[in-house]
Simulated assay, not measured.
Amino acid sequence: MTTFIPSLTLPAAVFANPAASVLLPIALGTAVGFSCRPKETQKTYMALKQPPFRPPPQVFGPAWTLLYGLMGFAAYRAYSTGLAPTASLESHLLTKQGATLYTIQLGLNLVWMPLFFVAKRPIEATVDILALSGVVGYLAYVWGQVDPVAGWALAPYLGWLGFATYLTIGVGHLNGWNLQDKEVDFPPSSKPKSTKYVDEK
């Protein structure tokens, strides 16, 4: 059972401020996305053999922005509720434990894209997203005991992670767990109305 670890936890000021709590994961996720060169990432994504129900690449940006926002809201809500003067000692402990779990999951979340699209290591990316899903599931349980709204605010994120895990494993399997040299010569935006992948006719 994870406990509160100050060295592995974001500063309290981040959780206590609603704007900082919501905007930090959005800003970090956006920064990682741009650092992975979006055009190159889309070219790789379009070149991969994909499992059924894979969305077009344009879906991921808006989806993750919403999920990062909900994640930040859950963090603020749990922290402000669990550390309120009238809250019990157990709520205080669970809130701080959740703050450490939250920080760990955010790190696991941010490392997935570089692992998958830059390093092109689908096995490591799969291990990462499985660990991420486990941590988020536990975090939802912990913070849900502090404040049910905070727990439920993580439900869409957890659901999306289940779908993303399916995509990660599916892509890894269909491409022989080797993504090296997987890239098309054009980004999706250069072919309007086209969302075909290399495995489609």
Rank of each mutant, 00 (worst) to 15 (best):
F163N: 12
V59G: 00
G134V: 00
N17E: 09
K193T: 08
L67W: 04
A99E: 11
N109T: 12
L139F: 10
T9C: 09
P6S: 08
T41E: 14
E200I: 02
I129G: 01
Y141G: 00
G144V: 03
G33T: 15
G176M: 01
L179V: 09
A20Y: 09
A150K: 10
N178Q: 12
A75D: 09
G170F: 14
L66M: 14
T168M: 12
G176W: 00
L101T: 03
V59A: 13
G137M: 05
T100K: 04
T65A: 15
K191Q: 13
G69D: 09
K49S: 15
P85C: 02
A119F: 14
P62K: 06
P156F: 11
F163Q: 11
G159V: 05
L167P: 01
F186W: 10
S190G: 05
P62S: 10
S133E: 13
P25Y: 06
D185E: 14
V198D: 00
Y138V: 04
Y68K: 09
F116I: 06
L10P: 05
I169Y: 08
V22N: 02
T65K: 07
V136K: 03
D185C: 07
S190P: 02
P85M: 02
V142H: 02
L67D: 04
V184R: 07
V142M: 03
S194M: 12
Y197Q: 07
L89M: 03
T9G: 00
R37A: 08
G98P: 04
S194L: 08
L132D: 03
S133R: 14
K43Q: 15
L93F: 03
F117G: 04
G159K: 00
Y141H: 12
P156Q: 12
V118T: 15
T3L: 13
Y157N: 11
E40A: 13
A74Q: 08
G159L: 09
M1E: 07
L10R: 05
E124S: 15
D185K: 11
F116G: 10
A16S: 15
V118I: 15
F116C: 13
P57C: 10
A12K: 14
L83H: 01
P188T: 07
N175S: 08
T81K: 11
L154A: 11
L106Q: 12
I169D: 06
V14C: 03
L66D: 03
A74H: 08
G151L: 05
N175M: 11
L8W: 13
D199N: 10
V135C: 06
A19N: 01
Y138R: 12
Y45K: 10
G151S: 06
N175D: 13
Y68E: 14
E90C: 00
Q145H: 13
A27T: 15
Y45S: 05
F186M: 13
L28R: 04
G151T: 02
N17D: 15
D185P: 04
L23W: 10
T65D: 04
Y138P: 00
L70Q: 12
